[in-house]
Design a protein around this nucleic acid. Structure first.
Lengths: 247, 247
DNA sequence: TGCCCCAATTGATCTGGGTCAAGGTTATTC
DNA sequence: GAATAACCTTGACCCAGATCAATTGGGGCA
C-alpha cells in the first residue's frame, strides 16, 4: 500500500476522473484545483486496495488495470459486487467507511484525490455533484440488473451475461451492435468469474466449455475469447433485446 | 392510474420527501417552491405505478403503503430489486426512462413532484443534490448487500436476512439492538418474498415453517411475526455482527 | 530442457431447492 | 352462512449445480 507519484500525461482526458466526473462542463479553475490534490498510486495484482470498514482517505478512479468490489462472509463465501475497469470511479463522497473490499485483480494504477478537499470542491461545484449523482445512478442500475442475473438466471445464462458485459465494455471500439466477430481477453480467473456469478469455479469452467462446444464463443488459450455472433450470445444471456447496462 | 389530490397536513415532516431529501438544511423558499409542484397520487394494491422503459414525469416518495421494484425476463421470471417503504424516494433525477417496474403491493399514496421543476430546483440548490447523492449511495450499498444474499446465501439464510431487514425497518420503534421480542406484520406474500430472494414460493413456505419449528420466529396467522431473539435471527442470516443496511 | 506451480478441465457423486400435485385456511361476496 | 377465490402448506420426486477428486496444460525460471 505504498503511495507513489507517477508521471502521467496531463492533457484533459488522460486522467479518467477529469473525463468522467468533471469534464462534462469543465472549468479551468476546477482542473487546477484538482491538480493540487491529485496523486497516483499503484497496486500489485492480488493486493487489497481498500478493506471493508476502513476509513477512506481518498476518492479516485482506475487509470489502468482491473479491480473488483467484493463482500465476504465469515466462513469465506465471497460475492463480487462490482467490477472496476479503467475510468471507473471509486469512493463514496460524504462517507468515511468503505462498504466493501476493493481488490486489485491485475496490477492497478489509481488516480486519487484527497477526500476532504475533493468534497469541499464538490460542495462548491454543482456540476461535479450532479455528475457523481448520475454515475451513482448508473451503478445502481447495473447493480440491480445484476440482481436479476444472480437471482433468476441459470449457470449458462449467467456466463453469457458476464461475457456480453465484458465484450460490450472491453471491446467497445469494435462492432457497435452490428454483426462481425468481437474479440477480447478475459480479465478474470475462473474463480473470480464464479464469485461474480454466485457459482463455483467448476461450474464456470463447464459452462464455458459448453458454450465453446456449441459455437457461441471461441477460445484461444484460456483467456482470449472471440464472439462470432454477439446477438447469439445475448440470446443465450436471456437479455431482452439490447439493453446497454454496464458494471 | 388516476391522479387525485388529498388533504395532507403540511407541517414539516409530514411529507417524507421534505424530511429525507430537503429538510436536512431546509430553507423556507425551497419548501414553498416544492409546495407548488407537489401533488399526491393513490394506487391500488396490485397496480403498476411505473412500467420499465416508460418516460417518468415525476419523482417523489412513498407516503403510505408498500411498493416494489421488479425486473422481468420475457419468459416471466421476475426478480424484485428493491422494496419501497414509506419515506423511500422514487425516481431518477436527470433520467427520463424508468429502469424497472414499480408495483404497488398494498394500496399506496405517493407524494410526487413534477420532474422538470424539481430538477431545476435541484440544479439551483446544492444541498438537495447532495442529499440525493447520499440517498443513492445508500441504495447502492443496499443493492450490493443484497447481491451477497442472492449469490451466496442458502434458502434459510435468505429468509432470515429478509425478516431481519423488515424487522429492523418496520419495527424500528421498538427494541434498538437490545433484547426483547420484536413484532411486525409481513408486508409481502410468499410469492413476493420468493421474487425478492430468488426462490420459489414453496421453498419460502418451507423455510418459514422450519424457522418457526426451530423457535427462531413465531407466527400468528400467516403474516404476523414475532422474533423472540433478534440476535439469533441475525446469526441465522449469516450477517457478521450488526450491520445497519436497509433496502 | 525440464521442473514446478497454478489455473483450468473433466469425471463421479451428492444434495438443496425446484417442480408437480394435493389439500388446507382465511377472507370476500352474494 | 355457503360459495368462491386467494393464499399458504405439505408431500413426493427430480435435476442443476455443488462437492470431491484426479488430471491436464502452460508459463516462468533455473
Amino acid at each position: 500500500m505504498t503511495a507513489q507519484t507517477l508521471h502521467v500525461p496531463s492533457a484533459c482526458g488522460d486522467c479518467p476522473i477529469r473525463h468522467r466526473a468533471v469534464c462534462a462542463h469543465c472549468d479551468h479553475d476546477e482542473l487546477l484545483e484538482l491538480e493540487e490534490i491529485k496523486y497516483y498510486r499503484t497496486f500489485e495484482a492480488g493486493q487489497t486496495i481498500i478493506w471493508s470498514g476502513d476509513m477512506m482517505s481518498f476518492v479516485g478512479s482506475v487509470v489502468s488495470g482491473i479491480a473488483t468490489l467484493t463482500q465476504t462472509m465469515e466462513d469465506g463465501r465471497t460475492q463480487m459486487v462490482g467490477l472496476l475497469l479503467p475510468s471507473d470511479f471509486v469512493g463514496r463522497p460524504g462517507r468515511d467507511g468503505a462498504a466493501y473490499n476493493v481488490v486489485a485483480t491485475t496490477d492497478v494504477v489509481m488516480c486519487c484525490f484527497r477526500k476532504k478537499p475533493f468534497e469541499e470542491l464538490m460542495a462548491r461545484t454543482p456540476h461535479i455533484a450532479h455528475r457523481l449523482l448520475q454515475m451513482t445512478l448508473d451503478e445502481l442500475d447495473a447493480a440491480r440488473e445484476w440482481m436479476l442475473v444472480l437471482g433468476r438466471k441459470t449457470a449458462r445464462e449467467k456466463i453469457a451475461s458476464l461475457l456480453s458485459i465484458i465484450a460490450r465494455r472491453d471491446a467497445s471500439v469494435a462492432a457497435k451492435g452490428n454483426a462481425g466477430p468481437t474479440t477480447f481477453d478475459l480479465p478474470l480467473t475462473r474463480e473470480a468469474m464464479a464469485d461474480y456469478l454466485g457459482l463455483t469455479l467448476e461450474t464456470v469452467s463447464r459452462q464455458i466449455s459448453a458454450l465453446k462446444k456449441d459455437g457461441v464463443i471461441q477460445l484461444e488459450g484460456k483467456r482470449h475469447v472471440t464472439i462470432p455472433d454477439m446477438r447469439r450470445l445475448m440470446d443465450e444471456a436471456g437479455d431482452d433485446s439490447d439493453g446497454g447496462y454496464l458494471i
